[in-house]
């Protein structure tokens, strides 16, 4: 699959502050790429440059090979932007908001009417289509905010922290929508400071802090990059020391120690060794009561890379 988005060397300073420093990445068709970082890390500034709202000091952005810039409208029809703000008119209805932006995307009347119905269905607002959006709940507004970005069937969807301030039900609906769009071949750039969302949605993640990308890759690659391991905790009774020794001699196991009625095993990839591990432990004459696999998450990776937590 070819790249839909290519961003290379994006840099932007405000006065003395370097907001974005030499950021580069690509997103392929059908891929969801996450920009994970705390507030103020440079996510929104990066997105503004990618969407053609902010001119970079240096670097360039292309979407489907067309260079994006603030001074040109070229290539913008390929992008659907879902900003962090609820950028919808409160005194217009859901349909009127969709039609307004649809016309700005240059959609003709028939196509627009069809797509408005489809999008309202996707975001679950068909029965509220003619209500003023100021009467909507926060979650409904968020869904409409996303719907506007989807209306013109963009090749590249940019979502800037789309779940901030929404209830769990709406949040789940939003995440499901993103998964669906990605599976339909849309390239998605998703910024968040919620580690769980990045882990659930993103094929690849770039960890950004203080304007620079600290690391990039799949979750597994990032975990491996910082040397984090899976932890398997086996609750058991019997000769735990012998079982630990047996587990420790397995290839793929980095360390096995005896705890209080548990055996703690550190491994690079828990899922690949788990069946054999359990066989060896029970073969050492212990009764297993329970097994818990704890995989390292992006929060741990972020902490390792930046020395601070994501929500700092």
């Amino acid at each position: 699959m070819g790249n839909i988005l290519e961003a290379s060397g994006l840099t932007r300073t405000f006065d003395q502050l370097i907001a974005v420093d030499d950021v580069s990445f690509e997103i392929a068709e059908g891929e969801t790429f996450g920009l994970l970082g705390p507030n103020g890390a440079g996510k929104t500034t990066s997105i503004s440059m990618i969407a053609g709202l902010l001119e970079p000091d240096s670097g360039r952005v292309t979407v489907e090979g067309v260079e994006i810039s603030t001074g040109s409208t070229k290539g913008k029809a390929s992008i659907g932007l879902v900003p962090q703000e609820l950028a919808i008119y409160p005194d217009l209805t859901a349909v009127e908001n969709l039609v307004f932006f649809g016309r700005l995307y240059g959609m003709n009347r028939e196509e627009l009417a069809r797509r408005v119905d489809e999008v309202l269905d996707v975001i679950g607002l068909t029965d509220r289509r003619d209500d003023l959006t100021k009467e909507f709940s926060g979650g409904m507004k968020r869904r409409l905010n996303i719907g506007i970005g989807l209306l013109h069937r963009p090749r590249m969807l940019i979502l800037d922290e789309p779940t901030v301030g929404v209830d769990p039900q709406s949040r789940n609906a939003i995440l499901e929508s993103v998964e669906q769009l990605s599976s339909e071949g849309m390239a998605v750039l998703y910024t968040t400071h919620y580690m769980e969302e990045a882990e659930r949605l993103c094929d690849r993640v770039a960890i950004i802090d203080e304007g620079a990308i600290q690391a990039e890759g799949t979750r597994r690659e990032l975990v491996a990059l910082v040397g984090e391991t899976d932890r398997i905790s086996i609750a058991a009774e019997g000769d735990l020391d012998a079982a630990s020794s047996a587990a420790g001699s397995m290839s793929g196991v980095r360390e096995a120690v005896t705890g209080d009625h548990t055996i703690e095993v550190l491994a690079a990839d828990a899922s690949s060794i788990l069946p054999e591990l359990l066989g060896r432990v029970s073969g050492a004459g212990v009764n297993i009561h329970g097994v818990e696999v704890i995989e390292p998450n992006l929060e741990a990776v972020f902490l390792h890379l930046t020395g601070k937590a994501l929500r700092d």
Binding site: T73, A77, A87, F101, L104
Partner: peptide
């Protein structure tokens, strides 16, 4: 209000000069 809500910026993210 349009500016505060980010609507004007959003217009500029469309193929609108």
């Amino acid at each position: 209000l349009s500016r505060q809500l980010g609507i004007t910026k959003r217009m500029l993210s469309t193929p609108t000069s």
